[in-house]
Design a protein around this nucleic acid. Structure first.
Lengths: 354, 354
DNA sequence: CTGAAAGCGCTTACAG
DNA sequence: CTGAAAGCGCTTACAG
């Protein structure tokens, strides 16, 4: 009697088909999958065998409606194609799968409005969100977080569990490294203004530079992309710096290409430091960069979210992931000075929107 | 009267809350969102205003259960961190959003078993699948495609709508390009055996080379990664070739790094061609590569899937995306010959699992 | 143009 | 250990 509903012959078998075929109630079929320990061994075996035979698999939508648990999470990032986020997603997605969750993906294209919209659209189908490097105002994040469990990556908001990749100390170390090589004026090629990571890296750079008597020129960019990095080369050259700390590896790569195009050699004429560590070892010459453990960040964020979704997470949870400066081949002694241009320091620390 | 169910005060407002507040039936509330044209202007306005006030938004899970349409699709790829797939996902995801679909993401880690498992897990929650560069046997794909609308990217199966990035002609052109520069022995650094794209590229390479009297050495690799590309350098050098066509840009990058590490300069001593075009312009020196229009592939695949899900798609739909060889700076005249090693050609065309 | 009612496929107290 | 029944929040013929 493997027949389906006569009026709906082509659709997938439902719990009722299995119940009928196994001559048990639908509740029993349900339990055979959800709480087999409440049933006798034989019943479980019978139901499962029947289900197998019919090709039955519980309908997750129906289950979600009934239990209120969708078994889904969402991962929202500013740009999937940025290797940092790609690696993070890879780790997070795999971890979520292992924990039994399917993951929605949202690419906000660096736009706060789109990000906001994605969170709204996805909210109805997920049990929780991981929001990476949000470009949203804090207030807005808090509103969204009121409705569902949230985990933030690289955004330090009280009362929301968060995973912070602590690159500040490594940028400080990078400045020390450059100073010890003899650099006196360096550039910080900035990431998105709204980015917590950007502020952290910039602040650490400025603070350490001040302490060591190194001058920092801040160079603003449109977006953390190869093109933006490349476009910043002009300003970099005009600024008369001998080294640049880039917001990330992608921009560092753009800078390297820009410099190469001008015949400026790295590290002979100019030193560069990047951040993330996923692209860095693949450059030629291999890039000195801050290792940010992207995949691990994604995994740990999922763990945090699972905790939060199960209700046993203090909202104050704050995991800090240490990073390391990996010195490869793009940092060296600066070239002998040709001019001694004096510039005023742009290094005023800004901490708005902490 | 904005009150919720007294016994469930904290949960989100439901259709009943809005119906009660607006003093209409639930059917009317439903229509105000789903088929407003069936209602009077005033009723629609009233319901929407009330919903807005209460913060009501239709529950997608309930809607999905009722209608059988989940409003979700899934995008399954072998490796999110490969720039080709990342860009493809970015395009596809954006397009899906514009069409009103949310997208699940699945990374199969190049493993057929995982891929199979992901398709099974996700099936219950999606209306359709986009399966990119599947490593699954054809039979298995066909089985999955029997249950839901499927669109394949870079896999040419009859009876399943597919989007093919036609890189063959560009590889042929690349071989012609190398031959015209004077190369007589080139390597093809292969991608995954199961990959349709790999076979297409290899076959085009071999065929064209044969026609032009150029010898092709096939070099197998473990996986399309930077590391695998780098590891292939040994064999590349031993083979005594003067140029390499890599399966993709990521491998080309590995090869470039490997050669650089040996002091072999590109393109002076050795020429390289890659594929995908997303990474290529960011290399230094910029890589000669086949532009594969990754993002567009994702977008078009989504369009195809939407067609299929709406039922108005002939299963035989087959979109072919043309590619172009973009000559940058990594291909040049080969160095003067030092030896004239004779090797037998490994160039036996294989077309299994078409 | 609007409403009453059945139904989508599950889960879970409540009884026994 | 198992079943009858209510309920999750929608949509959609069917009437009027």
């Amino acid at each position: 009697m493997a027949s389906r509903h006569p009026d709906n012959p082509r659709s997938a078998p439902t719990i009722r088909d299995v119940a009928d075929a196994a001559k048990v109630s639908r509740a029993t079929v349900s339990r055979a999958f959800g709480q087999p320990n409440l049933l006798s061994r034989e019943t479980v075996a019978l139901v499962r065998a029947t289900a197998e035979r019919l090709g039955y698999v519980p309908n997750p939508t129906a289950r979600a409606l009934s239990t209120g648990r969708a078994g889904n999470i969402a991962l929202v990032v500013p740009d999937i194609t940025n290797p940092f986020f790609a690696a993070m997603m890879r780790g997070g997605q795999a971890r979520a799968r292992d924990q039994g969750y399917a993951t929605f993906i949202g690419d906000s294209d660096e736009a706060p409005e789109l990000e906001d919209m994605l969170l709204g659209k996805l909210a109805g189908q997920v049990e929780g969100f991981i929001l990476a490097s949000s470009r949203l105002p804090s207030g807005r994040i808090l509103e969204h977080a009121r409705r569902r469990p949230f985990v933030l990556i690289n955004r330090d908001l009280h009362n929301i569990p968060r995973l912070l990749v602590d690159t500040g100390p490594s940028y400080a170390q990078a400045v020390e490294h450059l100073a010890s090589l003899g650099h006196r004026t360096v550039a910080y090629v900035a990431g998105p203004t709204r980015s917590w990571s950007n502020r952290q890296r910039y602040n650490a750079t400025v603070r350490t530079a001040r302490r060591l008597g190194v001058e920092v020129v801040r160079i603003a960019t449109s977006r953390p992309s190869f093109e933006a990095g490349q476009a910043s080369t002009d300003e970099l050259v005009r600024a008369g710096v001998t080294a640049a700390l880039a917001f990330d590896d992608v921009m560092a790569q753009g800078i390297m290409a820009g410099l190469a195009g001008r015949g400026i050699s790295v590290p002979g004429d100019f030193s560069i430091v990047g951040c993330d560590g996923i692209l860095a070892p693949t450059f030629y010459p291999p890039l000195t960069s801050v290792e940010a453990h992207c995949a691990e960040a994604g995994e740990q964020a999922v763990d945090l979210l699972v905790e939060a979704m199960q209700g046993n997470a203090s909202a104050g949870r704050r995991i800090v992931l240490a990073t390391e400066l990996v010195i490869r081949t793009t940092t060296a002694v600066p070239p002998p000075r040709r001019h001694n241009k004096r510039r005023h320091t742009h290094a005023n620390i800004n901490m708005e929107q902490s």
